[in-house]
């Protein structure tokens, strides 16, 4: 056959596409369960790391079952939707695209040495793409116990530094509410004159040089996501104060 004819070219392309598409689809389908398992275990790892439990990915599931005592799917008014499993059914990225009234937010409760911790899922936008993470609050619903961050495509060495231990460490013991009980979140700020982050009541942590926009993304994501949990926190907090 004439290799330069249009017919041959189209025939070749057609066969090539069908062949390659089937190979790729087959591989992707075969490996999917293992990939999902990895993603699931990593999520458990991240949730656990905010309450100070660092385990390898293989041990994540075991520790998760041990320490996470409650998984709640919260409606926008703060009530609990029992029909949704927050860990497997809730995808925060998709939730945030829904209508406001239909959104659900996952809340994980961890219990370690009979201390309760409340873990809130975060999601926002960095410089290039999505950033996400978890933040755990102590039982006063105000003091940060720990955070974990991850990102899709922030610049290595700059924005990607938000995943580093020293950055996450600086959030510890910061407060998210001001003295009047108003939510202020935690601001990632340049020039807060507190590079060692010794002041834990200023609602500020020191920013990473060269990653202003990623840092602003972290600030926004903490404020906005915790904002979604305020109705629930009010309900729970009311109970706490009555006791």
């Amino acid at each position: 056959m004439n290799r330069d004819s249009n017919f041959y070219t189209f025939l070749f392309v057609g066969i090539m596409i069908v062949g390659i598409a089937s190979i790729l689809a087959f591989t992707s389908q075969t490996l999917k369960p293992m990939q999902d398992e990895n993603v699931k275990n990593e999520k458990m790892q991240n949730i656990l790391s905010t309450v100070g439990i660092n385990v390898s990915r293989d041990e994540a599931e075991e520790s998760y079952k041990k320490f996470i005592t409650q998984e709640l799917a919260l409606k926008i008014d703060g009530s609990i939707n029992e029909n949704i499993n927050p860990f497997s059914d809730l995808n925060l990225a998709k939730e945030l695209k829904k209508d406001y009234e239909d959104q659900h937010f996952p809340l994980y409760v961890a219990e370690i040495n009979s201390e309760k911790y409340y873990i809130i899922e975060l999601r926002g936008t960095g410089l290039w793409d999505a950033i996400w993470g978890y933040i755990s609050l102590k039982s006063d619903f105000n003091t940060v116990n720990g955070v974990s961050f991850d990102h899709k495509g922030e610049t290595a060495g700059l924005g990607a530094e938000i995943t580093k231990e020293w950055f996450k460490e600086s959030f510890k013991d910061e407060k998210i509410f001001d003295n009047e009980g108003k939510l202020v979140g935690i601001t990632v700020l340049k020039g807060n004159n507190d590079p060692n982050n010794s002041d834990k009541d200023d609602h500020e942590v020191d920013a990473i040089s060269g990653s202003t926009i990623t840092g602003d993304g972290v600030t926004d994501m903490i404020y906005e996501r915790i904002n979604n949990y305020l109705p629930y926190l009010t309900i729970i907090n009311g109970k706490v104060s009555m006791r």
Binding site: T9, I23, Q35
Partner: peptide, 26 residues
Amino acid sequence: PNRIRIIVFLVVISSLVALVDQFLKA
């Protein structure tokens, strides 16, 4: 076909890369 050889190269390379990526993820 000579006229689309670069495209064929690209398709072959990128499918192989997609395979590597999938295997690494798993």
